[in-house]
């Protein structure tokens, strides 16, 4: 049975979609964004053993060439994550869809849905499909939080069990997108249009950094692509303030936007036809 690498499960998340939800964070991502707030979720652990030496609680050890994490002993100090030279984490639990569901099931009375995030959740496509099926059978809504690199057009099975995708649009053009994430923007922009057309676009998200990114252009680009849909559909646009928190030291020179700047971006989005804009 396949087990997906799970970084963590949050039992009560209020920022990953409407209402109270369980959020499942999978390990590993196919982007490497400079501003990533959780860089320890980017790569899979290569079992170099470096972190085992610095754990103050003795929760990490090597066994048969692999790092083993003792959840009970761990005091969540995050030292291991800080010392890892590989943007990975030793605190990964490998779980099947059924095992993840088992964890969620007890909380059913309190949540209205689940959201899978990451890392990049679509890398765990099979697990997600199975998990979402179980969720749907139990009356939950299902959302994907994705970087948009996945070929959704050719996976109707996944779209069928997903109520929507919260899609990151991180830049306005190929060059900026490659500079920021290391990957091409073309699939992302294709998905933006496709998901809107299929009624599966739950929200668009853009992290805003004055100076480093052409945020105005990104907003304009998103608006241009969504313009055929914006009249009938109330697509939420979440403008996320860049914050230093969690970002790797070598990328710490980005500037945090102020309220005024964010309001200015909101004005722009309004002008371009968005009605539902959230600044966080």
């Amino acid at each position: 049975m396949y087990r997906a690498p799970v970084n963590k499960i949050i039992r009560s998340s209020i920022v990953d979609g409407p209402g109270n939800r369980t959020a499942v964070f999978f390990q590993s991502c196919n982007f490497n964004c400079r501003y990533c707030h959780n860089p320890e979720t980017i790569h899979m652990c290569v079992h170099c053993g470096r972190c085992t030496e610095s754990c103050p609680a003795g929760a990490l050890r090597m066994a048969e060439g692999k790092v083993v994490w003792d959840k009970e002993k761990c005091v969540s100090c995050d030292t291991c994550i800080k010392v890892c030279p590989n943007d990975a984490s030793p605190k990964i639990t490998y779980m099947s869809a059924a095992q993840i569901w088992e964890e969620i099931e007890d909380d059913l009375p309190f949540i209205r849905g689940i959201t899978v995030s990451g890392g990049e959740c679509t890398l765990q496509r099979d697990t997600v499909v199975e998990l979402f099926r179980l969720a749907k059978q139990n009356g939950l809504t299902t959302l994907l939080d994705s970087n948009g690199s996945y070929d959704f057009q050719n996976d109707l099975e996944l779209l069928e069990v997903s109520d929507g995708v919260m899609l990151d649009v991180k830049a306005d053009c190929e060059e900026r997108h490659r500079w920021l994430t290391g990957q091409s923007i073309s699939t992302v922009l294709f998905n933006l249009d496709y998901l809107a057309k299929m009624n599966k676009l739950e929200e668009v998200r853009t992290v805003c950094i004055p100076g480093a990114l052409e945020n105005e252009k990104t907003i304009s680009k998103v608006a241009e692509i969504l313009s055929p849909y914006l009249k009938e559909k109330d697509i939420r646009y979440k403008l996320i303030k860049y914050r230093h928190f969690g970002v790797r030291e070598k990328y710490q020179d980005f500037r945090q936007p102020d309220e005024e700047y964010m309001e200015h971006l909101k004005e722009l989005a309004l002008e371009k036809g968005f009605r539902n804009i959230v600044i966080i």
Binding site: S12, I14, V15, P18, G19, N20, R21, P109, F110, I111, R112
Partner: peptide
């Protein structure tokens, strides 16, 4: 930040 979520928790409370 998310009164819907708080309401979900209250509803869940009454369910249990």
């Amino acid at each position: 930040r998310n009164l819907d979520a708080l309401l979900d928790i209250f509803k869940g409370g009454f369910k249990v």
